[in-house]
Design a binder for these strands. Sequence first.
DNA 1: GTTTAAATTAAACAACTGTTTAATTGTGAT
DNA 2: ATCACAATTAAACAGTTGTTTAATTTAAAC
Lengths: 209, 209
Amino acid sequence: MSVDKKEHIMHVAIELFAEKGFEGTSIRDLAQKADVNIAMVNYYFGSKEKLFEQLLADKAQFMRAKIEAVESNESLTEIEKLDHIIDGYVTRFLTQPEFHRVFLQELLVNQRANLHQTVLSLFEKNTRDVVSIIEKGIKKKQFKKVDPQLTFISIVGTINQVMMSKEMCNTLMNASANHNPYQDPKFKKRILEHIKQMVHAHLIITTVS
Amino acid sequence: MSVDKKEHIMHVAIELFAEKGFEGTSIRDLAQKADVNIAMVNYYFGSKEKLFEQLLADKAQFMRAKIEAVESNESLTEIEKLDHIIDGYVTRFLTQPEFHRVFLQELLVNQRANLHQTVLSLFEKNTRDVVSIIEKGIKKKQFKKVDPQLTFISIVGTINQVMMSKEMCNTLMNASANHNPYQDPKFKKRILEHIKQMVHAHLIITTVS
DNA sequence: GTTTAAATTAAACAACTGTTTAATTGTGAT
DNA sequence: ATCACAATTAAACAGTTGTTTAATTTAAAC
């Protein structure tokens, strides 16, 4: 029963942190929504901040795995690797929009320095992987001489911008306010097509006939 | 003396909100850093939340002005208009990074519904203006058939991603940790060149000779 | 059935929150 | 000099915060 309960608390915590932020979420809010006693959070996690740390740590390594797998797959061309990574990013972020917003908040609010650093170093690892793919493409003269780091920033930035506000996405899709765009396959398709179209135009050299 | 003091409080508030978030900033923090009495914030602004509202409202209209000016300037081509808007965005955001982070936080944390809506409607106005420019370019067959909304999202998303963390920018530029990238003209130039290069490749039709 | 330890609870803790009050100081007009 | 009003202050307010305690319940082991 205890493991389930612990995970239940973590799940509710992600929702609340994503909605109200870390400071804006009280342990009493969390305890009430998770239907547990106030003391259980500190009993299981030690403190509110440690709960947050564990949330980030748990998901972070999961987010690393796919990129590393794609990067080391030698049977793929560089542009195919990028397309796979874009697919992976969009899919993961759309299936866990709440957590991803917690992630973004921690990157944005620089109050808890150690957490900020954790999130940052994770992002930098992903940046390095993608940059090395783009640089390979440039060396093979398949890609234009672009700015590899900022190209990755544009990919991630596009997705993050979309993740920022559900309401923004709904006006984007001409959907009603109560609609959940992150579960809408049309929305996912639209974002994927846009990013790939833009990245391809940005990277691939158009051979003049 | 009173107007100066009021603006002084607002200035310190932007810094603190950007650094610690709205919930993470206490009125006592603010009063201490601004070197005023705790009661002065409520005396001038009524409440902490109204102070925040005024911060947003004051800057918001300033951010609107340039886009409207560019959009109505008939002597510019569509791609020139976009370049001007990109210039304006980057310049404004780099000169006021603290405020912009406050802006992003409010978009991200959905706790104060009315503030969230204010920020959102402002963003939507800007989106509409830029989208109409891109659509004109498509109609004139100067632009490819892209997704106008998401193209704007990519422009803004790239800038926002860069604004998210000073530390991230420094590793991006191979700069030391105490460096302020937002005041570095090389950094600005690099971002501007990347965004324009990417947007041009994405939009402009390459005529096959 | 007793024992042992984990799980759970309500209550209390001290510190902090935004806000208000009531008293005091400062300033400009008459 | 006096009045009126704005500006400023320290203190107190009521409520919330994260955390801890000490008591109780639950559950498994022997």
